[in-house]
Write a protein that binds this DNA or RNA. Structure first.
Lengths: 197, 197
DNA sequence: GAGATAGGCAAACGCTTGTTAGTTTTGTGC
DNA sequence: GCACAAAACTAACAAGCGTTTGCCTATCTC
């Protein structure tokens, strides 16, 4: 019985797992919960996947690689550092708004990855942060950014776009465009009006 | 046998629970894990507490009430809206850096509260956000802040200080003072240098 | 010193967990 | 309409969960 084309069955399970893990958390979500969503008995899931943590792995690493590949593209852009940072902020918001469950799981449930995947994941993330911070550092040196600690700036930016994942629901009163514009305004130009140079 | 004064025994358990829940997550942390940290068998914990979720409740609501009481004080300050918002940002950073485990649990594990506590908690938080957003709204009307969506501004600010909880460890290379100053600079004045008014 | 009490312990409870084994149903190609 | 494979099912497993019970022993009170 293949109600959905056979190759897609696993992907469907991973998608449902993403939503379930986001709602209840990885540990609190049981395979029987997942099976119910998929419309099957728990044992049947194992015809398609090897284990529960394979699901977590697939989700976390897919998201991680998406972020990294966009960062690589941005690094190679011909643009000012301010433009690169703006592009990365927009990229974050775009990925979050169109793949919210997976991003949420990758952000909040990665610590339940078993070794050696946990180490690999944190390594990828640390590398991402290091490269992003380097862009900010160079922007400061070029006089484009205020002379703040680059790590603090990095995490302030990343966190500020991360809340979108916690809070955003498609079809809410605020459009992705407004979201993007206002967050960018605050982070790049500040909340307060410029009064004196 | 009271190795620690009897009244403090429960508080000690709650503190250890906070650290454990932060590290492993509420669901993944077992009472046997907690017992080991406390230096006792799991059954003995029940001489001091009623249940596992009593621990979660105590942590979440203590943090919630701390935030709310500071907000009330700030609302009554005689100051500009920009000053009030800055005061709240400093307050957030201060609470996080001196009670990091509890804040982390309240931020990340609250969804495992059983009803009716879950509803009560989300109600308190929503009320907090509403009142904070009102300050930003008035700041915009007074011309102190840029004309952005107040909700977006609110969540951008809250998220930007929340990362401190995820990342901050006491005794790291960055001092709380630098932290406070740089985050405030970015959020209030923006990352980019002002070039033209 | 007697009695009360607080707080520890071992053992067990009923339940849920992820996962496996073995079997049966379903869909596909000839 | 038969054979093969994919994918479902039922039943069960060992382990771990939060929690209760009953008992034992230190420590404090009078």
């Amino acid at each position: 019985m293949a109600r959905i084309l056979s190759g897609n069955r696993k992907q469907f399970i991973i998608e449902e797992a993403g939503q379930l893990f986001r709602e209840k958390g990885y540990t609190a979500a049981s395979m029987r919960d997942l099976a119910e969503r998929v419309g099957v008995e728990a044992a049947s899931l194992y015809n398609h996947i090897k284990s529960k943590d394979e699901l977590l792995r697939e989700i976390c690493f897919r998201v991680a690689h998406e972020y990294v590949s966009h960062l690589s593209q941005t690094e190679q852009m011909e643009a000012t550092y301010a433009e690169k940072v703006r592009a990365l902020l927009r990229m974050h918001i775009a990925i979050i708004t169109h793949d919210i469950s997976a991003v949420s799981v990758a952000n909040n449930e990665w610590k339940h990855l078993p070794e050696p995947y946990l180490s690999e994941f944190t390594h990828i993330r640390r590398d991402y942060e290091r490269r992003f911070a380097a862009l900010i550092q160079k922007g400061i040196e070029a006089g484009e950014f205020r002379p703040v600690n680059p790590k603090i700036a990095l995490f302030t930016l990343l966190a500020a776009v991360r809340w979108v994942e916690i809070w955003y629901k498609p079809g809410r009163e605020i459009s992705p465009q407004t979201l993007e514009r206002d967050i960018e305004t605050i982070l790049i130009h500040g909340l307060t009006q410029a009064t004196a140079p």
